[in-house]
């Protein structure tokens, strides 16, 4: 993972700010595209992909490899994903530590896997298959979960760490997910970081969390708050991060606000002591 290029700070591509991206090319180091939007692309999406590819470094981010599915990886989906990676030629690509299909049925959301040996074996087997087909480095993202499954045989951090070590994958650490889980399940995110092989953290995701009654949820709809900037700063201080992506899907603010967040992230990435987070 150490040999991967440093990409900087970027944004998850959404059509709503396509125009702004072209007017602010110099301020956006790279884009993360949702791979699923381009797997069965019509002519318009193909043209969009070409347009983006010629102006930005792209990283495909998958939603549906379903690496935690006991029945294995969907070979058709994998082939299409491989074609996209071949076309884009990214430094790496990513998907989630979760399952989205069960018994061949698409369940429509990212479902957490239990932190058990059995689930670990399933993930390892599926990741081996993905790596056979796609030679580009794969990085895996941690997700949020509303319920901590009672059958856990180890902590989430230990589970993720072992998975990364045994599959030789990088980590796409979603610091918002980490923060949300730490609040919802009442643990210390710093201790979580202590357990992770931080040298495997390649990329970060960040965005504000959204409070819904007593829970935090990952709505991708809010400005990054100070608590999450603090996680960002801590992760950058502990390891060499290759890139970070702001994920905003809802309630789009003026693009200037997005650029402010990107600049804050850039400052922290370059110098974790850049400023007291409370001043961000």
């Amino acid at each position: 993972m150490q040999n991967l290029p440093k990409l900087g700070i970027g944004i998850g591509f959404r059509e709503q700010f396509r125009a702004d991206l072209f007017l602010h090319q110099a301020e956006i180091d790279f884009l993360e595209i949702t791979a699923d939007h381009y797997l069965d692309a019509n002519a318009h999406k193909q043209a969009e992909l070409e347009l983006l590819k010629e102006h930005f470094l792209l990283i495909p981010h998958g939603l549906n490899l379903s690496l935690g599915s006991a029945e294995g990886v969907d070979e058709v989906y994998l082939e299409k994903f491989a074609e996209l990676v071949e076309k884009v030629q990214p430094a790496w690509f990513s998907d989630h530590i979760c399952f989205t299909k069960s018994g061949g049925v698409d369940i429509g959301h990212l479902a957490p896997v239990p932190f058990t040996r059995e689930a670990l074996e399933v993930l390892k087997r599926n990741i081996r298959r993905v790596k056979e087909v796609i030679k580009t480095p794969l990085i895996l993202e941690n997700i949020t979960y509303m319920v901590a499954l009672p059958s856990a045989e180890m902590s989430e951090a230990a589970f993720v760490g072992e998975l990364l070590e045994e599959t030789d994958c990088g980590l796409l650490l979603d610091i918002t997910n980490l923060y949300i889980n730490s609040v919802n399940h009442k643990y210390d995110w710093r201790k979580y970081l202590d357990e992770l092989p931080l040298e495997r953290v390649v990329q970060l995701h960040f965005v504000g969390s959204h409070r819904h009654e007593n829970l935090l949820i990952d709505a991708h709809a809010d400005k990054t708050e100070n608590e999450i900037w603090e996680v960002f700063r801590e992760v950058c201080a502990r390891g060499e991060i290759k890139g970070a992506i702001l994920e905003r899907d809802e309630r789009f603010p003026p693009f200037a606000e997005i650029l402010e967040e990107i600049q804050t992230a850039r400052n922290l990435l370059e110098n974790p002591n850049f400023a007291k987070v409370s001043a961000v």
């Binding site: 709503q16 700010f17 396509r18 125009a19 702004d20 072209f22 318009h44 043209a47 969009e48 347009l51």
Partner: peptide, 10 residues
């Protein structure tokens, strides 16, 4: 056409 695609959201 490329410009119109790029700035469509604008």
């Amino acid at each position: 056409e490329r410009l119109q695609l790029a700035f469509d959201s604008l």
